[in-house]
Design a protein around this nucleic acid. Structure first.
Lengths: 350, 350
DNA sequence: TCGACAAATACAAACGTTTGTATTTTTGCG
DNA sequence: CGCAAAAATACAAACGTTTGTATTTGTCGA
């Protein structure tokens, strides 16, 4: 039984009901030691009974901070970002910060809209994982914002404040793994690239170099994010004269769709073609064949970005965060090309 | 080159720079016809140059609404909710509303935290798809909130305001499909159930009834959301004396993991066991075999929920929303059990 | 040139909270 | 019992916008 007419309960209502000044109510609700325990309890009970919901707008206005941090995520539905979000939330909770996520669906204009909304909400800090917009945009933002809203990027080394993991090492390990298995013709699927060099591409070429394998542009394919494009990549692949015996896919979803398309066309993985993914999504271990892939320390990246933000907001100079390395997860979607040739022989002789 | 010292630019700063009153600035920024076009342009240019970011806290405070709607989502990473979110955003944009999503990760307490945060932000309305918390909670919330923050549930018929689709029909069609193929022993995988009857379970039993097939509790399994549990379900299934020839899985992810486990144990899908999923996630068409599943009209549910919310907030009595029916999508993970027996025979004779 | 009326702008209060300071009440001690 | 110090509470200003009303400026026709 609370005040159920239009207006919402305010601190003043509670003050009136308790016969005290609004300032006392505020302090009681904050648990300040300046108010007598008995009064505090009475007020807190009253607030609960009356269904008081703090007006964050008023609070934010006067304190000029919101205890809110904003996160701009390119694609919420990408399981890849799940652990990131969890890491952010867990660490934020430790600092009494609350988190607002915004999905941009990888659209640059949506990214800016989201950033604007968050800034209008007067967030205390902004975390931007794998931004689409160019760094210039964020730079000018940071400049006009002054130091009031620190911005921490994830995996964008050129940003003034960033938390990053090794984006090349994991992919190099994938390539090395494939090369060790004996593959020489390895395809590479490029994703929709943001600004800057694609670290996977860097890794691809570096690994090839180290193994003294010639780079062949014919083996580079483009994934546009739709699963249909994965299928067409497979068709392009199979149309090649001297095709690849292994492919480093852009991510796990891309890899899964490619495996499907390959099978559809009568090829086996890894017997005929090895496929490696990236991201180590939850399903990766539960598809056929289970995916060889790379897992990134997303949870830690999330955690550290909040820590970094926090120290930035408190004038402390943040220590360089220590982020674990990406890991190569070898499962069954990759194998030796010898197996492929053997299998081919046996199947053709049958 | 904007004001790059700590304080952020306010309307007053712009007013001073333009030599006008703050109220004129507000009106100019709103594009009000009460201000002379020349002044308006000057002010708008000035605002842009100075890097003005509106203070939503102040704005919300005085207008006592935020043009923000909140959405509490059980699991952002579930692709199932992607279209929902898109539908909500698209429709919200039409009404000049902005959307804040909050992921609860299916945790009831997180759901309440999220709702609290949103209410403190003074959202103009709340959309709750597939809530975990009991309706009592939302009822008491609605009561203490008065009419100020309308709450629209998605797929919760017992809620005072809700937008729902048929949650039984699609599953019935799956079951009918399996039965038509000749299956008599059909397994069912129950998910982590919220409050109320599980509509899939209802569909399962009803379809069995209609086909005069006896209900056998031994064919009911429980999926806890982890993929590992999908594997153990398969083991339970295979341990049965008179096992199922088809299984209606809780969702596509569960189905994919089960297919993997079945193959791992030497069985083929659908030759030995048919598996049907639910949700029609993006990957469903791109795994092996492509999944027979049910797709729900998530986008429309999102759209309609915003429309409903909007009319609620404007005193209009919302018309009953028209939501399309769920669709059965037949792909290749289901087939006739005869094929299974044939395959078995041929393989045993080989 | 002077009203009258419209257009453009200025004024001022309000939103709900927080917080520094002032005031009142209580406590403890000589 | 009185007084100082401490504890508890009240007062008042401020945060940045919005918006109804008042005031100033400009325009037009007689």
């Amino acid at each position: 039984m609370t005040g159920s007419n239009g207006r919402r309960i305010t601190i003043k209502d509670i003050a009136k009901a308790a016969g005290v000044d609004p300032s006392t109510v505020t302090r009681a609700l904050q648990g300040s030691s300046r108010v007598k325990p008995a009064t505090r309890d009475k007020i807190q009970r009253l607030a609960a009974d009356m269904g008081y919901v703090p007006n964050m707008a008023a609070r934010t206005l006067v304190r000029s901070r919101s205890d809110l941090i904003g996160v701009v995520i390119p694609d919420m539905t990408n399981p890849f970002f799940r652990d990131l979000g969890q890491g952010i939330e867990d660490e934020a909770a430790k600092h009494d910060l609350r988190v607002i996520f915004n999905d941009t669906r990888g659209v640059e204009s949506a990214e800016r809209d989201a950033v604007n909304l968050l800034l209008e909400l007067k967030i205390d800090g902004l975390i931007v994982p794998m931004a689409r917009s160019p760094q210039d945009y964020y730079d000018s933002l940071a400049q006009s914002l002054g130091a009031s809203v620190p911005i921490v990027h994830i995996n964008r080394d050129e940003a003034p404040h960033h938390v990053s993991c090794d984006r090349v090492g994991g992919s190099i390990r994938v390539m090395q793994h494939l090369i060790e298995q004996g593959h020489r013709r390895i395809g590479f699927v490029r994703g929709p690239t943001g600004p800057g060099a694609d670290p996977k591409m860097v890794a691809y070429r570096r690994a090839l170099d180290r193994a003294s394998i010639d780079y062949d542009p014919a083996l580079i394919f483009s994934f546009d994010g739709t699963l249909a494009s994965s299928v067409s990549i497979v068709d392009q692949l199979l149309a090649l004269d001297d095709t690849a015996t292994a492919v480093f896919a852009h991510n796990d979803v891309n890899a899964i769709a490619m495996i499907h398309a390959l099978r559809d066309r009568g090829l086996r993985v890894p017997a005929d073609v090895s496929i490696a993914g990236h991201d180590d999504i939850r399903l990766a271990a539960y598809v056929d064949p289970p995916l060889t892939t790379v897992s990134w320390p997303m949870y830690e990246l999330g955690q550290q970005s909040v820590r970094y933000l926090y120290s930035l907001g408190h004038g402390a100079s943040p220590e360089e965060p220590r982020i674990p390395d990406p890991e190569l997860v070898v499962r069954e979607s990759t194998g030796s090309p010898k197996a492929a040739r053997l299998a081919q022989t046996s199947s053709s002789s049958a």
